[in-house]
Every structure is written in C-alpha cells, then in structure tokens.
Design a protein around this nucleic acid. Structure first.
Lengths: 159, 159
DNA sequence: TATTGTTATACTCTATAACTATA
DNA sequence: TATAGTTATAGAGTATAACAATA
C-alpha cells in the first residue's frame, strides 16, 4: 500500500489541514519501516523453525513479568485456547518455554520463557532493530537530528 | 515486541552513538503505528470476505500501472504461482479483479483490478490511514509541527 | 523443450466441539 | 456447575508436483 489522497505539493488550491499531510508522511514512514523490519525476519523465523504464532507467544512470555497462564496468552493474542495450547506445546518441545502446573490452581498451567527462549526472542528483536538501523543509516545527518528531536519526545510521552 | 537495549536517558555512563537512540525511537514509533493501523483492518477484511493474501494481491493490482500477469503477482508477493492462481480466482469470483488472456502470449493471463476492487482497496486503505490519523490526533500541536518538519522531507527524499 | 497457468495432493495452522481434571 | 487446558475433527490456505496449453 502507498499513501494516496492529500496533495502534499505547495500548489494546492486551498489551504489544507496540515495534519492530513503529516498523516500521509507518517503512513509512508510506517510502510518504509515495516518493509525494512520484516524483510529478513521471516527468513530467520523459518530458519529457527518458528511460525508467526510461535514468535508472538514468545513475545508475550518475554514481555511478561513472570509465568503466565495459557488463558492469558490466548486473550492477549486473540487466538483460541486450543491454538495456544498447541503452540505452547511446540515451544516446550523446542526448549523455548517451560510449562508447569500452577500450585495454587491445578487446572491451570504456568508458562515462562527459558534462557533459550529469551535468546531466540532477542535474536529476532535484534533483526527487526537492524532493519530500522539500516533505514537510519541512509539518512542525512540533519535528517537524523530533526527526526530524533521530533520522534523522541513523542514516543517517550506516549510510552 | 518493544524496544529494548540502548539507554535513552541522559545519565548514560558514556556518550552513546546518538543514532542508536533514534533507532529505538523509530522502532517504538513503528510499533505504535502498526498497532494503530492494524487494529480495525482485520475486522474489515473479514467483513469483506478477504484474507491477507487476497488483500495483498489487490494491493499489487491497485498499485500496478496496468494489467499484470499471475507470475508478476507471484514474484512480487513471494508466493507460489499455484497460490496466486487460486487467490486471483477467488478475487475474480468476488468481482474484485478481471482476468483475461494475454493477446500477445496466450499462455499468459492478464489480471487487472475492477472498479469494485479499487473501491474495496480504497476502503481498506482509508481504514489504515484513519489509524494513523487517530495517532496524530493524540499529539500536541508542537509535536505535530516538529514531526511534520522532520518526517516530511525524509519520506519525500526517499520516495 | 521451456514457460504460463491450473489442478491434485499433502501439510500446516486454526476454530469449534467434545473431553478430562480440578475448583 | 464452572473453568483451564487438551484432544478430535473439519476448514482454510499454501507448497510441491503433475498436467495442459502455448511459445
């Protein structure tokens, strides 16, 4: 997809909501960054024997403070409990996560990431980050400067 | 996924490559925009009876200058010719695209988007754009201003 | 013979439903 | 009875391979 509508040239017949131009620019930037970050990611996932759902599960577990239930992962990702059950099982077989009975509720299982799972996730994260880095490397010094000054405060305020 | 590494606080022990901080910020911004644009998109796709591959095919055809071959779509999306053949067939059945024999090479089929397909794609595009717009609406005036000044030149230079 | 696209078959992944164990 | 998770079954989607038509 690419940006459409909203003339961004200066010879627009009428004064246009400047926010619309920004929307178009952010849209375009998003597309660039997505392309940059996704290019190598899928190859790496395939090489690691992981599919998208497995990576997402790994992400939830890596970002969790501690062990979580299957139901939590299911709710977070919006996938059926059955799918999560199978995905977690696959991750357990690959040594990426650990699954234990919840001592407080033996119906429930607590899932947590292993050291290997943390390493795997870190590798994939670094790959995505490298895509962004490649984008930044193509920027002019003054472009980097103004981007840093503009984007930094926004992401920190909304964090 | 969320940004990790790279301390962005000002009390970093050593002077760090400032580009690394920008990478983290753009990474975070990208995640925000992806979340914003993908939230409603999938619901709309489902409502339209389209899956991701069909939308991607529709995207290729909408962004093409004219009719293209199945092989072109296959190469562009990195999917097998068989999958594209079935996907295009589904789009034809839904009236989203038109498939004709190439008069210059009767082995080949030329696929082009119909008025309905253009409308469908436009609707999905507008939805993604609305997500970005919602993000922009949450910004402060000065944030909008500095973002516009920084992002605009970059996306226009790299376009 | 090589190439473009279609069809046959097998595999992966997910959802719904049935089931087990626990509360 | 209700809930957490597992397993059975069916459906969607893709890849590989076999095929048909054309170059």
């Amino acid at each position: 997809m690419q940006a459409s509508s909203a003339p961004t040239t200066s010879d627009a017949p009428k004064a246009k909501d400047p926010a619309e131009a920004l929307v178009d620019d952010l849209f375009a930037l998003n597309n660039r960054l997505m392309a940059a970050t996704h290019r190598d990611l899928f190859a790496a996932m395939e090489k690691s024997g992981l599919n998208i759902t497995l990576v997402k599960c790994l992400g939830v577990l890596n970002e969790a403070d501690g062990p979580v239930s299957l139901g939590h992962v299911s709710d977070t990702l919006g996938l059926s409990l059955a799918a999560i059950s199978r995905s977690v099982d696959a991750l357990v077989r690959r040594g990426q996560v650990k699954r234990e009975e919840d001592p407080d509720d033996r119906r429930s299982k607590l899932v947590s990431v292993t050291a290997r799972g943390r390493a795997t996730y870190g590798r994939l994260h670094a790959l995505r980050r490298a895509g962004v880095r490649a984008f930044v490397d193509r920027l002019e010094p003054d472009e980097r400067e103004s981007l840093a000054a503009a984007v930094g405060p926004v992401v920190r305020r909304l964090a």
